[in-house]
């Protein structure tokens, strides 16, 4: 391995090691939360709703839950890891190393991405054991999930870098992300909503992400798949470019 490869592997290992050390909080809690959603919405409500667009209700809900766990965990990991290290001053050890802005950004991003991937993967395995979950379009599902994970990793990095206190991170997660995800159609179809809520849902970017992942699993979508994939790719690339610029400038990282 070259010195640069060792450096990048170490930066990444540190991020993964951090959440693995507090597994109960970083992996256990989100898994339990997802399991509770499946129980409440799938078993309890599902017995009344039965089907949506010809799909068993619990199967309709699970793709959105998998996408949600990938997104929230990618975001939460990176935002709190960066803010915590800024608080402790420990981030100075990485910042004063020869690591480039790109290496630092990718390592912080992949930490959250890995956590999201693990939680989403375990959710998928658990859901597959409970219900018959199809995978209809794997070539849409895999890139969609990876783009969702990477997008929220970037959002987590951006929030962590900008944040000056834990309240700043909690604000984005509680007052921005959670409402957008819940109102993006994880638990229902937007076509069932009365106006103007049906139209308003189309302005929620997470609606398109949920539809991409749902299409990958069950083959049903309310939006254009190519257009949604294109928009998600563009948004992820845009956010990555913004973060790279902030890291290169040392924004709120270097005095």
């Amino acid at each position: 391995m070259t010195a640069a490869q060792i450096r990048f592997a170490t930066l990444w290992r540190r991020e993964v090691n951090r959440f693995m050390k507090i597994k109960k909080q970083t992996l256990g809690a989100p898994l339990l939360e997802t399991f509770l959603y499946i129980s409440v919405f799938g078993a309890a409500l599902g017995s009344r709703i039965k089907e949506l667009h010809g799909i068993e209700y619990v199967v309709f809900v699970i793709p959105g839950l998998i996408m949600m766990s990938f997104a929230i965990n990618s975001f939460a990991n990176n935002s709190s890891s960066i803010l915590q290290q800024k608080f402790q001053g420990a981030i100075q050890d990485q910042l004063s190393s020869p690591a480039s802005p790109l290496e630092l950004l990718l390592a912080f991003s992949f930490g959250g991405f890995m956590r999201g991937l693990i939680v989403a993967g375990l959710t998928f395995i658990a859901a597959s054991l409970l219900v018959d979950l199809p995978v209809d379009h794997i070539l849409v599902l895999v890139p969609s999930l990876f783009l969702v994970g990477f997008f929220f990793s970037q959002l987590g990095v951006l929030t962590g870098v900008r944040a000056e206190q834990f309240d700043d991170v909690a604000f984005v997660q509680t007052f921005v992300l959670t409402p957008l995800i819940f109102l993006g159609g994880v638990f229902y179809s937007a076509t069932l909503l009365p106006q103007p809520f049906e139209t308003l849902t189309h302005f929620n970017p997470i609606y398109y992400m949920i539809n991409l992942v749902r299409y990958g699993f069950v083959g049903f979508s309310e939006v254009s798949i190519p257009l949604s994939l294109l928009a998600l790719t563009a948004a992820t690339a845009g956010l990555f470019a913004v973060n790279l610029r902030l890291f290169s400038r040392g924004y709120k990282l270097r005095a």
Binding site: R7, T10, L11, Q85, A90, D93, S97, P98
Partner: peptide, 25 residues
């Protein structure tokens, strides 16, 4: 400042630092 990472052990602190500077295992 005592800017150590609370999550790391003493050994990890040294190992990671050297890794950031490209030192082989």
């Amino acid at each position: 400042e005592l800017n150590l990472d609370w999550f790391l052990t003493v050994e990890e602190t040294l190992d990671y630092h050297a890794g950031y500077f490209g030192m082989p295992k």
